[in-house]
Simulated scan of single mutants.
Amino acid sequence: MTPQELREFCLSFNDAVEDFPFGPETSVFKVAGKLFALSALDARPLKVNLKCEPEIALQLRARHPQIVPGWHMNKRHWNTVTADADLPDHLLRELVEDSYDLVVAGLPRAERLRLDRP
């Protein structure tokens, strides 16, 4: 996945926005003001921090060397994923969507319904 593809995919979700609270080099993707993905899109290799269920995070880290505890994040709930040729694009897309869904699940019910995610 290219940086542009990652940006477009993150922004394809309902109410997703790109913000730069840490400076112009770090893209922060949010839904309803809550972070679901963070990446320095110009960095090589391309890496992205994504929220993950703690048990699943451990399983993913054990199976994929490209997935490690979240850099500068709560390592129980966040992974840093290196988007390289050995990590299938479909897996990265699933992880981004799961991160978005986890953040939306923590929003108030009215906000979830507004986003069509009960």
Rank of each mutant, 00 (worst) to 15 (best):
L91K: 09
N74W: 05
V104Q: 02
E97A: 11
I67Y: 09
H77I: 05
M73C: 14
K75N: 08
T80M: 06
T80Q: 11
T82G: 04
M73Y: 11
M73I: 08
R76K: 15
D84G: 15
H77D: 12
D89G: 11
V96L: 01
S99G: 12
V104L: 03
E97K: 06
R76W: 03
D101I: 04
R76T: 14
V104D: 02
A85K: 14
R93G: 06
L87N: 13
L92M: 13
V68S: 15
L102S: 11
W78Y: 06
P108V: 00
E97D: 02
L92K: 12
K75E: 09
K75Y: 03
W78L: 10
T80N: 10
E94K: 10
D84S: 14
D101L: 13
N74L: 08
D84L: 07
I67L: 15
V103Y: 04
T80P: 08
V104H: 01
H77T: 04
H77Q: 14
D101T: 10
L95W: 00
D86C: 05
Y100C: 10
S99N: 14
V81E: 05
A105I: 02
V103F: 03
A105G: 05
D86G: 13
N79E: 06
V104S: 02
W71E: 15
D86K: 14
H77W: 13
G106E: 01
E97T: 01
G106T: 00
V81C: 05
D86L: 08
S99C: 14
T82P: 09
L107Q: 01
L87F: 07
D98N: 12
A83Q: 07
V96M: 04
A85D: 15
H77V: 04
E97P: 00
L91H: 11
L87Y: 08
G106I: 00
D84P: 06
L92S: 12
P88W: 05
T82M: 08
H77P: 07
V104C: 03
L102C: 11
V68C: 13
P69Q: 12
L102V: 10
L87P: 14
H90T: 11
R76I: 06
L102K: 10
E97C: 00
N79D: 12
G106Q: 05
V103P: 03
R93T: 11
M73H: 14
L102W: 07
R76G: 09
W71M: 14
E94F: 03
G70A: 13
A85Y: 03
A83I: 13
H72M: 07
L102N: 10
P108C: 00
A83R: 02
T82V: 04
V103R: 01
